[in-house]
Simulated assay, not measured.
Amino acid sequence: MMNLKMIFILLIWASSLSYSLLKGGYSAWFMTYSLSLLLFYFIIVKLTNPKLKAHRKIASEKWISGDHISVKVNIQFHSWVPFVWIIVKDGWHRQTYFPRFQTTFQYEYLIKNSQRGKYDSEGLQIVIKDLFGFIRKKVKVKSKLQFIVYPEPIPITEWKNIQSNWEDSDHTSSLRNYESTQFSGIRDYNYGDPMNRIHWKMSAKSNKLKTKESEISVDHKMMIFLDANQKGENFNTSSFETAVQIAASLIRYGKNQRFVMGIVSNNLEQYNDSLTSSFKIQQAYEFLATVIPDGEMPLYETMSQQMKKINKDMMNMCITTDLNDEFINTCLFLRKQMRKINIVFIYESKVLNIKHRKYIKSLEEMGCHIELVKSHHHTQKQGGLKHGA
């Protein structure tokens, strides 16, 4: 496009020069000189290579879904040719600026109602235009920006059915928790760490939050099963987002209560990990920030396979939006093996239908503890996708 403009101006200039040489006259030569100046300006601007530097800054690298994330952008622009328009773009925002004779300008924008996921941007695309709009240059400027948005937690302390199971006297021996007053070390603060374990003196010295690691003996055991099967009968995006929130909330609750934990999902990669350290727990949070419902295996098959590998005293928390005959039969089979089954059932309708009520009654009769959670994401888009720019 730019070459066509230059060819067009050259043709007009050549025509004007030819006319002036053949006919002469004040008006003809005035037109030729004017076009010569315009052609000279065009060539100079085209050959100009402006120097651009950019820097983006956010307050934190870790956010919660729904947060408004403020991004501050600083642009340094050096050119001896006056470029009037500057358009700055990344994957999340577009800003038009008129620098006049300024060499540095900055602005701030918001990523509103952020969705969970990893946000990764290598740089900015800057488009600059000259005074007459003849020249349009695209420049890619390096300005790396990375942050992660975790799912928003849900207060599970209100789940009386699940709480009663944890407090059941029949399981008292497996629910004891011994916490020493001795500390095994200090590490960087991770999402979900309780505030009473923050080492404030070290945090002040390092200008970064630090957490005290306690020497703890734990007998609590919990395995979380997250249903990420996209082919489920009652699957929808909003309910899955609620399921991810519940899984993150259970991990945070278990971490605060010093549970021995693990998490399994029937997503495409068949995620399975034992959360035996703070690093592993952080990895699980990152998995929940990025997981998408791409699984094809039903949750009841995943439960049957995985429970063969874990002890019977493990409390199994199954988060699903899909109750069916196969799931009920699997739970009955596992209960006969003395497995502890807790189910968090997520529904979206105003009231449960007759079929779901029947399934819930069957589960309760076989000794499963059930918590009913209504999906509250009515219009939210699917999270977990990688947001690049």
Rank of each mutant, 00 (worst) to 15 (best):
M2Q: 15
M2K: 14
N3T: 10
K5C: 05
I7R: 08
F8T: 13
I9N: 07
S15Y: 11
S15G: 13
K23A: 07
A28E: 11
W29A: 02
L37S: 08
I44L: 14
I44G: 04
V45R: 01
K51W: 09
A54P: 07
A59C: 11
E61T: 14
S65V: 02
S70A: 15
S79N: 06
V81L: 06
K89W: 09
D90L: 04
Q95P: 00
P99E: 11
R100G: 13
R116T: 05
G117R: 03
Y119F: 13
D120P: 00
I126G: 04
V127H: 07
V127C: 08
I128W: 00
F132D: 03
G133R: 04
G133T: 04
K137V: 06
V139H: 09
F147D: 04
Y150S: 02
E152I: 09
P153S: 07
P153F: 03
P155K: 12
N161G: 04
I162W: 00
S164W: 08
D170I: 07
L175I: 08
R176S: 10
N177Y: 03
Y178D: 15
Y178H: 15
E179Q: 15
F183H: 13
D188A: 10
D188E: 15
N190I: 13
G192H: 05
D193Y: 01
P194D: 10
M195H: 14
W200T: 15
W200Q: 15
S206K: 04
E213L: 13
E213Y: 03
S217K: 14
M222A: 12
A228R: 00
N229E: 07
Q230A: 09
K231M: 06
G232W: 01
G232S: 07
N236Y: 04
N236W: 05
S238F: 07
V244N: 03
Q245Y: 01
Q245W: 02
A248S: 15
S249E: 03
F259M: 06
F259N: 04
F259W: 08
M261D: 00
S265R: 00
S265C: 07
N266T: 05
E269N: 12
N272G: 06
S274V: 13
S278M: 08
E286F: 08
F287S: 03
T290A: 10
T290G: 03
V291E: 04
P293Q: 05
M297F: 05
P298D: 09
S304G: 03
K312Q: 14
D313T: 10
F327M: 10
N329V: 07
T330M: 14
C331V: 15
L332M: 15
L332I: 13
F333E: 15
R335M: 11
Q337F: 05
M338T: 08
K340C: 07
N342A: 10
F345P: 00
V351G: 01
V351E: 12
H356T: 11
R357F: 03
R357A: 06
K358Q: 14
E365P: 00
G367D: 07
G367M: 06
H369C: 09
H369D: 12
I370W: 01
L372Y: 02
H377D: 12
K386Y: 15
K386R: 14
H387E: 10
